[in-house]
């Protein structure tokens, strides 16, 4: 379905243009100052490929983990009548306001070797989480999952719950209804939430460097590589930033086209 193009009201135009400028100019600045001659050299660096691959893999795993945990959580927040739901929602969104570095320290206190859960994992199974790729995924999930939860909860609230009644009258139990009716209905919201979550995970820095540390190939994601390169060679840092930007934009555009294509058929 297409709507006729709406004309933008005048009073919105100027702030909107300023908004675009505010968001886009820094990116342009980055591109203008990029020493393009270094690009090929940087891309050939094995460490850069390693960091990029690690970033993409860990952000994707973090998004998958967020989906598995976050969608059910969003459902509980949107649909359950349990008391204390607003408190629960506030708690869930804490990582949004928490400085990521503090989030990293908090993760240590729970999952670190001396942490409440971490010490038990270490004693019982010999598993230590900090300074591993798993720690990167956990740190990114901690910071990024609230974006998914909020967006899916919004989609669930906006969805017409009468469809769930219809499903019940057609013999669908709660689980079947959730799977075959609710989930497909809020799929666009889940997709939007997953994209937000992935993007946030990809750019995650503070919680990651705190909880997962920084080691090439294991825990050094692109944002960490950029930050450390900044201390040594700002030009290299800019090149790395541009590479990260290009890869993430390309991924998002590709996915968007696919989703839009599917939505268009619906």
């Amino acid at each position: 379905m297409t709507r006729p193009a709406t004309r933008v009201p005048g009073p919105l135009l100027v702030p909107a243009a300023l908004g675009v400028a505010f968001l886009v100019l820094p990116l342009l600045g980055l591109l203008v100052r990029t020493p393009w001659s270094q690009l090929a050299g940087q891309l050939a660096e094995p460490a850069v490929g390693q960091a990029l691959r690690l970033s993409l893999v860990s952000a994707t795993l973090a998004t998958a983990l967020s989906l598995v945990l976050g969608v059910p959580l969003a459902w509980v927040l949107a649909r359950s009548r349990a008391r204390g739901r607003s408190v629960l929602r506030a708690l869930v969104t804490v990582p949004l306001v928490l400085p990521p570095v503090v989030g990293g320290v908090a993760l240590f206190l729970v999952l670190g070797r001396q942490g409440i859960v971490g010490s038990w994992l270490d004693d019982a199974f010999g598993i230590t989480i900090p300074f591993t790729t798993a720690a990167v995924v956990i740190a990114e999930t901690f910071v990024a999952m609230p974006f998914l939860v909020i967006s899916v909860e919004g989609a669930l609230r906006a969805a017409d719950s009468r469809f769930e009644d219809v499903a019940a009258t057609l013999g669908a139990g709660r689980w079947t209804t959730f799977r075959r009716v609710t989930l497909p209905l809020v799929a666009p919201g889940i997709a939007a939430g997953a994209v937000l979550c992935w993007a946030r995970a990809l750019g995650e820095f503070g919680a990651t460097i705190t909880f997962a540390g920084n080691f090439p190939g294991t825990t050094q994601t692109m944002p960490l590589a950029v930050y450390l390169a900044l201390q040594r060679d700002p030009d290299a840092a800019i090149v790395l930033s541009v590479v990260l930007l290009a890869v993430s934009l390309a991924t998002l555009l590709l996915l968007r086209d696919r989703w839009l294509g599917r939505a268009g058929a619906a």
């Binding site: 017409d160 009468r162 469809f163 009644d165 219809v166 499903a167 009716v181 497909p184 209905l185 799929a187 619906a266």
Partner: peptide, 9 residues
């Protein structure tokens, strides 16, 4: 139901 409520997906 009044609005048919066919599952849109």
């Amino acid at each position: 139901f009044q609005d048919a409520l066919l599952f849109p997906h």
